[in-house]
């Protein structure tokens, strides 16, 4: 009887409750993150085809990756996509947010229409639709040929333009960045604008001297998030182009996937693990670089 009571007391302690409530995360972190990461770090130093036992080969995978032309190609394609797609997306989000910040009766409807693509853009349905729309006989060429009669049967999935089909798709989904800008815009106090008007500023000046500096933390946030997202793009490139033609849309994550689960031949799990670790390092470096640049252009109150 006495023992039971002490157990109850133990349960009643704040720290006990703290550990019990955070137990899901502790188990989840160990089981689904830490253990897999340690496993994959080990395999990245192995030759491993899943079928037979892993064979330790030291840094050989990393050395091979360095001499692998497809690796450099994938890195180049991913950087191109991130460096063009991300700024375009953020600029679009900002421009539309500035337009929609004006409050009219129709504003909620407009906001919904511009945001809807972000909500469903990651689905397989949209990937299929995109592929169908950009086919030579698809609706994009059909609509374009009304305006530019010469453009019939342009091959969007050619070597130079295929990546643009994917860039257009990601830019189309600027909605969530736009909403973040909208809420930041609403937090800028009216007094600042009034003071600027007293100082004789026109709307152009108000934008450059008041709005933009105050938005830099939000721009920074959106840039970081969207850059990381671009580096990790997988589903849409897998479904729409599958890296083709001539690896011109071979995104890095897709390359990792193809090494681990090739359509033909043996799996190279060790090699894929090493690729994934390199990606993690690259993303960390890019994020660090963005954070380092922060003090140079982000306005702090």
């Amino acid at each position: 009887m006495k023992k039971k009571k002490t157990f109850k007391q133990f349960l009643g302690q704040e720290s006990t409750a703290g550990y019990i409530f955070s137990l899901p995360f502790i188990i989840g972190f160990l089981m689904f993150m830490l253990v897999p990461m340690i496993l994959s770090l080990y395999y990245s130093f192995c030759k491993y085809d899943i079928q037979s036992a892993p064979q330790f080969i030291g840094f050989q995978n990393y050395i091979n990756i360095f001499h692998d032309s497809s690796f450099w190609k994938a890195m180049g394609v991913t950087c191109y996509y991130a460096l063009i797609g991300t700024p375009l997306k953020v600029v679009f989000a900002l421009i539309i947010a500035l337009i929609l910040v004006r409050n009219t009766k129709l504003t909620p409807f407009y906001r919904a229409a511009y945001y809807l693509p972000s909500i469903i853009g990651g689905s397989v349905a949209i990937a299929i639709l995109w592929r169908r729309m950009f086919e030579p006989t698809g609706t994009i060429n059909a609509v374009l040929s009304i305006v530019f009669p010469g453009i019939t049967n342009f091959n969007w999935f050619g070597e130079g333009s295929a990546i643009w089909v994917l860039i257009i798709l990601t830019v189309w989904q600027f909605g969530s960045s736009m909403l973040i800008f909208l809420s930041a815009l609403k937090q800028i106090s009216k007094e600042l604008y009034e003071a600027a008007v007293v100082d004789g500023a026109n709307s152009w000046k108000k934008f450059w001297k008041v709005t933009l500096p105050l938005l830099t933390p939000t721009i920074f946030f959106n840039l970081v998030q969207q850059t990381i997202n671009s580096f990790l793009a997988f589903t849409q490139s897998k479904l729409i182009t599958d890296g083709q033609p001539k690896d011109s849309t071979l995104f890095y994550t897709l390359y990792v996937y193809k090494k681990a689960f090739p359509a033909m031949g043996k799996s190279q799990m060790g090699y894929a693990s090493a690729l994934a670790w390199i990606m993690l390092i690259v993303i960390s470096l890019v994020t660090a670089l963005l954070f380092w640049s922060r003090s140079k252009w982000v306005y702090e109150e």
Partner: peptide, 17 residues
């Protein structure tokens, strides 16, 4: 930290696990 760790990075490690 886990928020910063994208699921795509965990794709291969988790699959093997």
């Amino acid at each position: 930290a886990t928020m910063m760790l994208p699921p795509q990075i965990l794709m291969i490690p988790q699959y093997m696990w």
